[in-house]
Deep mutational scan, measured.
Amino acid sequence: TFYNFIMGFQNDNTPFGILAEHVSEDKAFPRLEERHQVIRAYVMSNYTDHQLIETTNRAISLYMANL
């Protein structure tokens, strides 16, 4: 899942690491979701930090390219 992918960046001092920290603390994050459209919609609806949203979009693109 995307959640498992992004958790691989925990403790990294990178934008993906920052995203992983936010996702791990977000109890409502769709952890079992595999459809990138649902993940993107969730982030757009629940996150207000523009940098975090952009990082999510980049992470989703990388995740999709590696499926």
Rank of each mutant, 00 (worst) to 15 (best):
T1F: 06
T1Y: 06
T1V: 05
F2I: 05
F2T: 01
Y3K: 00
Y3C: 01
N4W: 09
F5E: 00
I6R: 00
I6F: 03
I6V: 07
M7N: 02
G8D: 07
G8T: 14
G8Q: 15
G8M: 13
G8E: 10
F9Q: 01
Q10M: 15
Q10A: 13
N11T: 07
D12L: 12
T14Y: 03
P15R: 08
P15G: 07
P15V: 11
P15D: 12
F16N: 01
F16S: 01
G17Q: 06
I18T: 10
I18W: 13
E21V: 14
E21R: 15
E21C: 12
E21I: 14
E21L: 15
E21T: 14
H22T: 10
H22S: 06
H22W: 12
H22Y: 14
S24Y: 13
D26A: 02
D26N: 03
K27R: 11
K27H: 10
F29G: 03
F29I: 05
P30I: 06
P30W: 09
R31L: 05
E33F: 04
E33A: 08
R35E: 08
R35K: 11
H36E: 12
H36Y: 13
H36R: 05
Q37L: 09
V38I: 11
V38P: 04
V38K: 08
I39M: 03
I39L: 05
I39A: 01
R40H: 10
A41D: 14
A41S: 09
V43T: 04
V43G: 01
V43K: 00
M44K: 09
S45T: 12
S45H: 10
N46I: 06
Y47R: 01
T48F: 10
T48K: 12
D49N: 09
H50K: 13
Q51T: 13
L52M: 07
I53M: 07
I53H: 06
T56H: 03
A59D: 01
A59N: 02
I60E: 00
Y63G: 00
Y63T: 01
M64K: 09
M64Q: 09
M64G: 04
A65N: 10
L67T: 12
